[in-house]
Simulated assay, not measured.
Amino acid sequence: MSNIEKLISIRNFTSEHHKGLVSLIFVGNWIISKHQTFFKQYDITMQQFNILRILRGQHPKSASINTLKERMLDKMSDVSRLVERLRKADLVERKSCEMDRRAVDVKISAKGLQLLKTIDEEIGILEDTLKASLTDKEVVQLNKLLDKLLSSY
Protein backbone atom coordinates (compact mmCIF):
# COMPACT_ATOMS: atom_id res chain seq x y z
CA MET A 1 0.00 0.00 0.00
CA SER A 2 1.40 3.40 -0.99
CA ASN A 3 1.56 6.42 1.33
CA ILE A 4 -1.26 8.23 -0.47
CA GLU A 5 -3.47 5.17 -0.11
CA LYS A 6 -2.76 5.13 3.64
CA LEU A 7 -3.19 8.88 4.09
CA ILE A 8 -6.56 9.22 2.40
CA SER A 9 -7.83 5.64 2.73
CA ILE A 10 -8.33 5.04 -0.98
CA ARG A 11 -7.27 1.74 -2.44
CA ASN A 12 -8.92 1.73 -5.83
CA PHE A 13 -7.48 4.45 -8.03
CA THR A 14 -8.76 4.21 -11.59
CA SER A 15 -5.19 4.40 -12.95
CA GLU A 16 -1.64 5.36 -12.04
CA HIS A 17 -2.37 8.77 -13.63
CA HIS A 18 -5.34 9.21 -11.29
CA LYS A 19 -3.19 8.20 -8.31
CA GLY A 20 -0.47 10.63 -9.43
CA LEU A 21 -2.94 13.49 -9.77
CA VAL A 22 -4.45 12.84 -6.33
CA SER A 23 -0.95 12.64 -4.85
CA LEU A 24 0.05 15.97 -6.45
CA ILE A 25 -3.07 17.65 -5.08
CA PHE A 26 -2.51 16.17 -1.62
CA VAL A 27 1.17 17.18 -1.53
CA GLY A 28 0.34 20.65 -2.86
CA ASN A 29 -2.25 21.20 -0.14
CA TRP A 30 0.16 19.85 2.51
CA ILE A 31 2.89 22.27 1.38
CA ILE A 32 0.43 25.19 1.35
CA SER A 33 -0.68 24.30 4.89
CA LYS A 34 2.93 24.25 6.12
CA HIS A 35 3.61 27.61 4.47
CA GLN A 36 0.45 29.19 5.90
CA THR A 37 1.46 28.09 9.40
CA PHE A 38 4.99 29.39 8.88
CA PHE A 39 3.93 32.83 7.57
CA LYS A 40 1.31 33.31 10.29
CA GLN A 41 4.10 34.13 12.77
CA TYR A 42 5.04 37.11 10.57
CA ASP A 43 1.42 38.22 10.18
CA ILE A 44 1.49 37.84 6.40
CA THR A 45 0.01 35.38 3.93
CA MET A 46 1.79 33.31 1.30
CA GLN A 47 0.43 35.64 -1.37
CA GLN A 48 1.72 38.71 0.46
CA PHE A 49 5.11 37.04 0.81
CA ASN A 50 5.07 36.35 -2.94
CA ILE A 51 4.39 40.05 -3.65
CA LEU A 52 7.20 41.12 -1.32
CA ARG A 53 9.62 38.73 -3.06
CA ILE A 54 8.62 40.06 -6.48
CA LEU A 55 9.11 43.63 -5.29
CA ARG A 56 12.48 42.81 -3.75
CA GLY A 57 13.52 41.46 -7.16
CA GLN A 58 12.49 44.80 -8.70
CA HIS A 59 14.15 46.89 -5.97
CA PRO A 60 14.98 49.76 -6.12
CA LYS A 61 12.48 50.08 -8.97
CA SER A 62 8.75 49.82 -8.47
CA ALA A 63 6.31 47.43 -10.14
CA SER A 64 2.82 47.95 -11.47
CA ILE A 65 -0.17 45.98 -10.21
CA ASN A 66 -0.26 44.23 -13.60
CA THR A 67 3.39 43.18 -13.28
CA LEU A 68 2.64 41.73 -9.85
CA LYS A 69 -0.41 39.86 -11.22
CA GLU A 70 1.66 38.35 -14.03
CA ARG A 71 4.38 37.12 -11.68
CA MET A 72 2.21 35.82 -8.85
CA LEU A 73 2.30 32.09 -8.11
CA ASP A 74 -1.37 32.19 -7.10
CA LYS A 75 -3.09 33.57 -10.20
CA MET A 76 -6.41 33.85 -8.33
CA SER A 77 -5.09 36.47 -5.90
CA ASP A 78 -6.64 39.92 -5.64
CA VAL A 79 -3.36 41.80 -5.98
CA SER A 80 -4.81 45.27 -5.29
CA ARG A 81 -6.27 44.09 -1.99
CA LEU A 82 -3.03 42.31 -1.01
CA VAL A 83 -0.96 45.40 -1.82
CA GLU A 84 -3.29 47.57 0.28
CA ARG A 85 -2.82 45.29 3.29
CA LEU A 86 0.95 45.39 2.81
CA ARG A 87 0.79 49.19 2.56
CA LYS A 88 -1.17 49.41 5.82
CA ALA A 89 1.56 47.31 7.46
CA ASP A 90 4.20 49.71 6.04
CA LEU A 91 5.80 46.87 4.05
CA VAL A 92 5.25 48.54 0.66
CA GLU A 93 4.71 52.03 -0.71
CA ARG A 94 2.09 52.85 -3.34
CA LYS A 95 1.86 55.86 -5.60
CA SER A 96 0.13 56.81 -8.81
CA CYS A 97 2.15 56.13 -11.92
CA GLU A 98 3.55 59.32 -13.42
CA MET A 99 2.89 58.16 -17.00
CA ASP A 100 -0.62 56.78 -16.40
CA ARG A 101 -2.57 58.25 -13.47
CA ARG A 102 -4.95 55.25 -13.48
CA ALA A 103 -2.07 52.87 -12.81
CA VAL A 104 -0.37 52.34 -9.45
CA ASP A 105 3.34 51.76 -8.83
CA VAL A 106 4.30 49.63 -5.84
CA LYS A 107 7.70 49.58 -4.19
CA ILE A 108 8.97 47.53 -1.26
CA SER A 109 9.77 49.58 1.84
CA ALA A 110 12.79 49.28 4.14
CA LYS A 111 10.52 47.50 6.63
CA GLY A 112 9.47 45.05 3.90
CA LEU A 113 13.09 44.35 2.99
CA GLN A 114 13.93 43.74 6.65
CA LEU A 115 11.00 41.35 7.04
CA LEU A 116 12.17 39.34 4.01
CA LYS A 117 15.69 39.22 5.44
CA THR A 118 14.30 37.77 8.67
CA ILE A 119 12.12 35.27 6.83
CA ASP A 120 15.01 34.22 4.56
CA GLU A 121 17.00 33.20 7.63
CA GLU A 122 14.25 30.80 8.74
CA ILE A 123 12.45 29.66 5.60
CA GLY A 124 15.00 26.90 5.06
CA ILE A 125 13.01 24.95 7.63
CA LEU A 126 10.34 24.41 4.96
CA GLU A 127 12.92 23.09 2.50
CA ASP A 128 14.30 20.66 5.08
CA THR A 129 11.32 18.34 4.53
CA LEU A 130 12.20 18.05 0.86
CA LYS A 131 15.89 17.57 1.67
CA ALA A 132 15.07 14.87 4.20
CA SER A 133 12.78 13.02 1.79
CA LEU A 134 14.59 13.26 -1.55
CA THR A 135 18.20 13.00 -2.68
CA ASP A 136 19.72 15.72 -4.85
CA LYS A 137 19.34 13.43 -7.87
CA GLU A 138 15.67 12.79 -7.04
CA VAL A 139 14.98 16.52 -6.68
CA VAL A 140 16.49 17.12 -10.13
CA GLN A 141 14.24 14.36 -11.51
CA LEU A 142 11.21 15.81 -9.69
CA ASN A 143 11.92 19.26 -11.12
CA LYS A 144 12.19 17.82 -14.64
CA LEU A 145 8.90 15.96 -14.24
CA LEU A 146 7.11 19.01 -12.84
CA ASP A 147 8.54 21.14 -15.64
CA LYS A 148 7.21 18.60 -18.13
CA LEU A 149 3.76 18.86 -16.54
CA LEU A 150 3.94 22.66 -16.64
CA SER A 151 4.75 22.62 -20.35
CA SER A 152 1.03 22.05 -21.00
CA TYR A 153 0.00 24.98 -18.77
Rank of each mutant, 00 (worst) to 15 (best):
R94V: 11
R102L: 06
I44V: 12
D128R: 02
R85Y: 04
S23Y: 00
R81S: 13
K34P: 15
G57T: 10
F26I: 01
S133C: 14
M99C: 11
Y42P: 07
N66L: 09
D74W: 12
T37N: 08
G57D: 11
L73H: 07
T118F: 02
S96F: 15
L149T: 15
V22E: 08
L68M: 11
K131P: 05
M1D: 08
A110S: 15
S133Y: 09
F13V: 01
V79G: 02
K111G: 00
F39N: 12
Y153T: 08
F13G: 01
M99G: 10
E16K: 13
I44P: 07
T14Y: 00
I44C: 02
L115M: 02
Q58W: 09
D90P: 04
D136R: 05
I119N: 09
D136G: 10
Q47F: 11
K148E: 14
K95P: 01
E121S: 04
V139M: 08
L146W: 06
E98R: 14
I54Q: 14
M99V: 05
L24N: 04
K144H: 15
I108F: 04
H18Q: 07
H17Q: 10
I123H: 05
Y153I: 03
N50R: 02
K34A: 06
K69C: 02
N143L: 02
K107W: 03
R56A: 07
R81T: 05
I119D: 15
S80Q: 13
L115T: 01
F39G: 07
K75Y: 06
T14V: 12
V22F: 04
D128V: 08
F49L: 04
K40N: 02
L52R: 08
I54F: 07
G20S: 10
R11K: 01
M72I: 11
V27F: 03
L150W: 03
Q58C: 06
D120G: 11
